[in-house]
Design a protein around this nucleic acid. Sequence first.
DNA 1: ACACCGGGTCGAAGCGCTTCGACTCCACCC
DNA 2: GGGTGGAGTCGAAGCGCTTCGACCCGGTGT
Lengths: 335, 335
Amino acid sequence: MVTLAEVAQHAGVSASTVSYVLSGKRSISASTRKRVEHSIQQLGYHPNAGARALASSRTNIIALMVPLRTDMYVPVMMEIAIAVATTARTHGYDVLLLTGEEGPAAVRRIAGSSLADAMILMDVELHDERLPLLRESGRTAVLIGLPADTTGLTCVDLDFEATGALCVEHLAGLGHREIAVIGEAPAVYERHTGFAERTVDGIRAKGRETGTRILHRPCEGGFAAMGTTLSRIFDERPGTTGFIVQNEAAVEPLLNLLRQQGRAVPEDVSVVAICPEQVATGASVRLTSVAIPAQEMGRRSVEQVVAKLAGRASEEVELLAPELTVRESTGPAPA
Amino acid sequence: MVTLAEVAQHAGVSASTVSYVLSGKRSISASTRKRVEHSIQQLGYHPNAGARALASSRTNIIALMVPLRTDMYVPVMMEIAIAVATTARTHGYDVLLLTGEEGPAAVRRIAGSSLADAMILMDVELHDERLPLLRESGRTAVLIGLPADTTGLTCVDLDFEATGALCVEHLAGLGHREIAVIGEAPAVYERHTGFAERTVDGIRAKGRETGTRILHRPCEGGFAAMGTTLSRIFDERPGTTGFIVQNEAAVEPLLNLLRQQGRAVPEDVSVVAICPEQVATGASVRLTSVAIPAQEMGRRSVEQVVAKLAGRASEEVELLAPELTVRESTGPAPA
DNA sequence: ACACCGGGTCGAAGCGCTTCGACTCCACCC
DNA sequence: GGGTGGAGTCGAAGCGCTTCGACCCGGTGT
C-alpha cells in the first residue's frame, strides 16, 4: 500500500503538505498542488481509512440500522437503504449496514467504538428502546419514522396522518360512506410502529370530519388471511364500498378476492392503496394510491445527517407531504 | 471516550496487558483478567475501531456490493444482504453497504483505503468488470453468482443448471411434453447475468434428455407484459401444458391470466416457479417451486470470507443443491 | 528602512491500538 | 543447586494520518 509519506517523497514535499492538498484546509500554491496531485495519480495513492479516522476522529461512515424482519415492506426498506447508500456516497460517506438483530446494543457498540460518525435508524417504534441510548451517546442521528417523543431528535418520514386523511378525502369525495381499512399485520400494531397508527389516526379524523364510517382491520399478507379478513368486513359492514390498503402483501389478494366475489373495481368498490409506486402500477388493476417516497426518505435522511455533521442546524421533524395519484381502482360510489 | 490506557490505569496494569486480555493472544493470569474485565465493564470501554484498524491492519469489516437496480428480485437481494449482515456479526464483522452505482471504482476505493478486509459481490455478470480489479487488488473476495472465468475466485451460488433440470424432470415425470419457460426481463439476459442463462441451459439439456420441447421467453414483470408473452406462447405452441417461471414479478400475473383464460391450474396446465419460498406459498395458488436459498447464500458467502481471512483454504466454487417442493400448482399432464 | 502581515511550507506531536522483544518469577529436573 | 523453560507482564516502537505552531519570504504601509 502506498502511504502519504511516499507520495510526499515522490513529490518532493513534506507529508503535511500532501495532507493539506488533500483536505484543502490550508492554501497551497498551484504549482505544488499540481505536483502532488500528479504523484498521487502516478502512485495510485488512497488514504488509509483507519489512520484517517484515528487522526481526525471522523470516519466518514454513516451507520444504517435496518429492521431484521425480512417479511415486511421489504421493497420499501431496500429502496430506502439503497437511496441512503448512494446519497451518502455523493457526500463522501460510506454506509455501514446494521440489522435489528443486535438490538439496542448496536447503538452502544457503534457509538463506543467510533465506527461511524452518525446513525440512521429505520423502523422506529413509538417508544423505541434505542432512543435513550442514542440520546445518551450524543452521537448524531436521524430517524426514519416518528417516535412518541421527538425532543432533541431529527426525524424524516412521510406524513402518514395526512396520508390517511387524503385517502378518506378522496373516497368521501366520490360519495363513499363506508370505508374499510386493511392494515398491516397485527404484529406491526403491537410493536407500536408509529406509521401504522398514525395512518389510522389520520383516517379516523378525516372520517369523522366527512361523516364517513371507518372499519379498521389489521391483516397478515397472503390470500388466506385476506380471505378471512374480507369476509369479516362484509359481515360487519355489508355496505362497504371503499377500501384503503396499507399492506403490500394484501393488495393482490384483495383484488383477486373481490373479483372472485363478483365485485367489480371500481364500479362496485373502490380501492386506494398506500404503497410504493411499483406495486400500484404493477397490480392487476392499476391502483389509485399514495406513494411511499422511499427514495426521498433515504435521501433526506442522509442530507439531514450531513447537515448536522457540518454543524448546520436542521429541522427537528421533517414530514413529507403525501401525494395521491388517481388511477383505475377508484370511482364514484354505486347509487 | 474511554481509552485502553485509562482501563489499564484503572486496573493497575499496562496497556499491553489490557490489549492481550482483549485479544487473548497471550496468556493472562485469571486474577489479572478478572480485574481488567471489571475495569472495562465499569468504565464502559469500547476499543476504537480506527486505532485498531491502523495498528492491526484488520478492520473487521466486510464490504457488500449490491446491485443498484432496485427493480429486480429485490426480496432475494434484501434477504441475502440481511443474512450477510447477521452472519457477519456472529463472526465479529460489520458490513459496509456499497451500491453498484460507483461501479468497478468502488473495488479500487475499498481495496486502496483498506476500508474492509474482504468483499462480497452480488449480481455477478459473466464478464464482470469488477473481477480484473479484484484479482489485481489481491483483496479477499467471495462472489454470490458465477462468472465465466472463476479461476482464483471463490463463488457461492444456487446450482441453477441443476435447478432448471429439476423443474423439467418434475414436469416431464408428470407427462408434460411441451414446456414454456417464462424468464427474467430481457435486460437480465443482455447483461449476461450468469444465473438466468445457466437455468435455461439446465432446462434445455434436460429437455433434450427427456424429449420435452422447450420454449423460452424472457418477460418483464407485470400484467401487461405477461399478457403479451402468454398469448405469443400459446400461439406458437398451443399444446403447452407446463410452465417454468423464473421471475417473481411474473408469477401472479401468470396465474391470473391463466385463470382468466379458463385454464385451470394444475388440471390443465402445471406451473413450477423458481423463487423465494414466500412468493411460492403466498401466491394465489400454492406453487410447486424450487426455492432460492437466499439466507443460505448470504450465510455461506460470509463463512467463506471468514475462512479465507483465517487462512483456511476454501473451495473455489460452492453450488448449493436445489430442492423442489411439490405444492398445488403441478399435476399430471391432461390426456 | 523597518516592522508587519499573510500565503505557503515544514516538523513534530499525537490519535488509540497492536505487537515484538525483553524481563521477572517460579516450578521443576537432573 | 544451578540451569531451564514457560507463564505472565511490561515498555516501546510503530501503524498512516491530521493538525498545530513555527518558520521563511516577498510584498506593504509608513
